[in-house]
């Protein structure tokens, strides 16, 4: 049997991204294999968010190719929708829908996008909420939950679309320290199920324990890619060493 990690799930080829005249991504080449977990690190403004937002077309890349599970992202709206159906995203600010109950937050996309019935979608939602360990909060509204609980609802909301890929943009940066752990544990369990994940985070413990590879970015470019051991024991590039010395 071939290693699933050798089959590409996400392919970025020579991707450039500009905001006006400012180049936020420069010549990005990255292939993420099936079931692989990639952690992206780098200083603020280095383009980490922009990189993962190009994968589900929250940002449109200006040059190069982005191919997700064999679907190339073009201006074709159907392609974009197909990619988004397969790709969940978790944001730093949770971005739960405050006017909907927790349950409705989770059932919304399965019902509206997958055209699932009410009962079936609620069963699925409860399964996902159980997986992130907060089924008892289903009837509450997001505003009534703690930050850690909200972020776990956000993860359940993405999982309810049964995506093949999960993108995380600093999922624990807005959380109090005591809540960071519960969210990281949820993500670790998710990785163990074989989900393909790209995680932007400053949690080096998570990177060390869960990541297959770590990507270090600076100034819109990928500076260095390697296994966690490689990164934390003998990084090659000067910029990587400098950055790691600042955050570790």
């Amino acid at each position: 049997m071939t290693d699933p990690k050798s089959q590409p799930m996400i392919q970025l080829e020579k991707v450039d991204k500009f905001f006006g005249s400012f180049q936020a991504l420069r010549d990005i080449d990255l292939v993420v294999g099936r079931t692989e977990v990639v952690v992206v690190i780098g200083p603020s403004g280095s383009g980490k968010s922009t990189l993962i937002r190009c994968i589900n077309r929250l940002e449109k890349h200006d040059a190069g190719r982005v191919i997700v599970d064999g679907i190339e992202l073009t201006d074709d709206v159907r392609n974009i929708q197909d990619v988004r159906k397969e790709t969940g995203m978790v944001f730093q600010q949770f971005n739960l829908f405050p006017h909907l109950s927790v349950l409705d937050n989770v059932t919304l996309a399965p019902r509206q996008v997958r055209r699932m019935g009410k009962d079936e979608s609620e069963k699925l939602a409860m399964k996902m909420l159980t997986r992130v360990r907060i089924p008892e909060q289903a009837r509450k509204f997001p505003g009534q939950l703690s930050g850690g609980q909200q972020q776990r609802v956000a993860i359940a909301r993405s999982l309810a679309m049964q995506p093949k890929i999960m993108l995380f943009d600093e999922p624990t940066s807005a959380l109090d320290p005591e809540m960071i752990k519960e969210v990281l544990e949820t993500m670790e369990e998710l990785a163990a199920t074989g989900m393909t994940m790209i995680v932007v985070t400053h949690e080096m413990g998570f990177a060390r324990a869960v990541a297959d590879r770590v990507v270090f970015m600076a100034d819109g470019q990928i500076v260095e890619v390697g296994t966690p051991e490689h990164f934390f024991t003998n990084p090659e590039e000067e910029r990587t060493k400098l950055f790691l010395s600042q955050i570790l």
Binding site: N56, G88, M89, A109, V113, S158
Partner: peptide, 15 residues
């Protein structure tokens, strides 16, 4: 309305 609301909805595949 915070832009994150629209981004979250789009990322879920809502038109």
């Amino acid at each position: 309305l915070p832009t994150g609301q629209v981004e979250a909805a789009s990322s879920l595949g809502l038109s």
